[in-house]
Amino acid sequence: MTDEDEAAFDEFVAARSTALLRTAILVCGASAHDAEDLVQGALEKVYRHWSRIRADNPEAYARKVVVNSAITRSRRRKVIREITFAAPPDTPVDGPDLGLREAMLAELRKLPTRMRAVLVLRYWEDQSEIETAALLGCSVGTVKSQAARGLARIREAMVEGVPA
């Protein structure tokens, strides 16, 4: 790797790592520490192939690695007992009424990881359906259906989360 490559990588990290970290936090469900580890891992892959990919949208590559490792991590964690019944309690966490936003985020965290990733990419990252499908390696139809189902569940949480 040339000095120029190294310098370009530094610029890339400085410019993009915060955005990647935020996406990772949202996709893997709010642990900043885990997310940071994940982003470091993703950037390491970017770094490894930097001279090859620097001219060719390294950000998209990094985002793809971040999102997919967040999904993998979450799947590995819960593989034993929640494979087909990934829906946790239907009743929202209704302890303290923290209002709409918290209710939405709580519901977001309860979604299956892939569905959550779709929502984060579509509505946080403002990725198009086509871009989201490419990032997740699924069809546009899957992105549409996952987004619709995810939003429907969030919408329910909004209704129930509003203090009476």
């Binding site: 970290l21 709010a30 940071e36 470091q40 936003r101 918290e102 969030i154 909004m158």
Partner: peptide, 28 residues
């Protein structure tokens, strides 16, 4: 609408999160 609300909630969640400046060196 729900999309905007969701985006706003996500923004509120990660708004104050910044990658540590040591990220580049940590990767290396």
């Amino acid at each position: 609408n729900v999309e905007e609300e969701l985006k706003e909630a996500m923004r509120a969640q990660v708004d104050e999160v910044y990658a540590p400046p040591s990220m580049g060196s940590a990767v290396r």
